[in-house]
Design a protein around this nucleic acid. Structure first.
Lengths: 247, 247
DNA sequence: TCTTGACATAATGTATACATTATGCACTTC
DNA sequence: GAAGTGCATAATGTATACATTATGTCAAGA
């Protein structure tokens, strides 16, 4: 038996990818430190070959960087990097919204995303019991995914997917935190208002407004970032997405 | 001798990368066709391992796509894909210009890019003899590269570099063609005017204007694309960057 | 004749052996 | 005592062997 014993032969690289991503995001490998291939391969129970494939993919995602002398290291992000990534998500989602408005959207797609917005209303509306943040997270991701695909451009949706793969640039990056901070819960109401407005602008073919709204929507993430960093630093450990940020 | 005989040991993947890119761009491997690893490895005189690394990098650049059943194929781009890639370059360069204006630029960087613009003046100005398109190409690439780095955001410049790696989204994609078409030469004058205006807007901290100008600047590429496709289809073969475009 | 099945072939995915290069440590020398 | 050199060790980059899976062909049956 030269090949693998347990998993399917083609999924070793997937196993390495998810395992490695977990190690990075959970902070079990520190930024800047050189990632030993043999050690990681042993730890993840895969061979070096699929591990190297996973490292390359993670470099493409931006989580690790190549060391000039060879090998890889966990990338460390400055606060400015986080700000820029959020800004960039706003710009790209803004472009998706503008192009959708300018070029028009097939009714089926418009109905699908409108349904998501309607479902989000049910989550955000103050009702009996606590707000279901898990459900919000799921619907919010679905909204942003559908928005990225709304204008039908593969080139654009690929790019949005790329920048969104950075955990702190994800639309849900700060949602987990909000559960613990009552003041944050109200930002979800604002966010949902923006969701509605973006779709309305697209339906009305108001491209500039749709773009501006989507940009401002991403800006909420930056607001949350600033709040965590400057007013409640103790919250920072609760935001898993910020584990990669130094400083 | 198990290792390589000729090249340096760490540069086999670079050799595979450039060689494979050439094969794709020169159209020696047709879009949609499955890329045989063994055949390519033999053709490029490298082993399968660095070849696979190169394939992964090219997938990240967007030139090839994974086949669900395994392996890779040359990606085929529709005309809409080309349009979207150009639009996206405009959006990203616009963001670079806006952020540079909003955040300010260190004088050294500003002087460097201003010098490039000044040198471009010398190329575009109608003087004795034919226009030096090679020099324009070099300076134009330098201008766009410096613009991408002007605001100092690694996240943004990485993204611009990515989209620009698609040959038809490169700032120089249509410059080669212009040499053959006198009417096109005047577009270089317009382009240079826009170069000047973008830098001026950044110096004046006029972010919105800088962004709009950079977007409009990319739009020149789309104009050239439309001209080639609709008015002079025979020119299409001269634009190497369009070899990947189907339809 | 068309469809379906099995089989042979070839190609990918994985594992591992090998060669080169980088890195850390000890020793020598100034 | 500090700095530079040489060597041993370990890690990366590359090549290749192996196992599984996909694919195309041929034949048999409807």
């Amino acid at each position: 038996m030269t090949a693998e014993q347990d998993g399917a032969p083609k999924q070793q690289t997937a196993k390495a990818l998810t395992g490695l991503r977990d190690l990075v995001l959970k902070g079990e490998v520190l930024p800047g430190e050189r990632l030993s291939e043999v050690a990681l391969a042993a730890r993840l129970k895969v061979s070096r070959t699929p591990l190297r494939a996973a490292l390359q993919k993670l470099e493409q995602e931006g989580l690790v960087v190549m060391i000039p002398s060879g090998g890889y290291a966990v990338r460390s992000f400055s606060r400015q990097d986080v700000i820029d990534a959020i800004e960039l998500r706003g710009v790209l989602e803004g472009t998706a919204a503008r192009l959708a408005a300018e070029r028009g959207v097939p009714p089926a797609k418009l109905k699908a995303i409108s349904d998501v917005v309607a479902n989000l209303d049910g989550v955000v509306e103050p009702g009996p019991g606590a707000m279901d943040f898990g459900r919000y997270e799921m619907l919010n991701e679905r909204f942003h995914r559908q928005l990225a695909a709304l204008c039908g451009s593969d080139v654009l949706s690929r790019e949005i997917e790329r920048i969104t793969s950075l955990p702190f640039a994800s639309p849900n990056a700060f949602v987990n935190t909000e559960a613990d901070v009552p003041a944050f819960q109200r930002t979800l109401v604002v966010a949902q208002t923006q969701h509605r407005a973006i779709i309305a602008a697209i339906e009305l073919r108001e491209g500039a407004r749709a773009e501006a709204l989507a940009r401002e929507h991403a800006r909420l993430a930056r607001q949350n970032l600033d709040f965590v960093m400057e007013e409640q630093p103790d919250l920072r450990s609760k935001v898993l997405a910020l584990a990669l940020m130094s400083g």
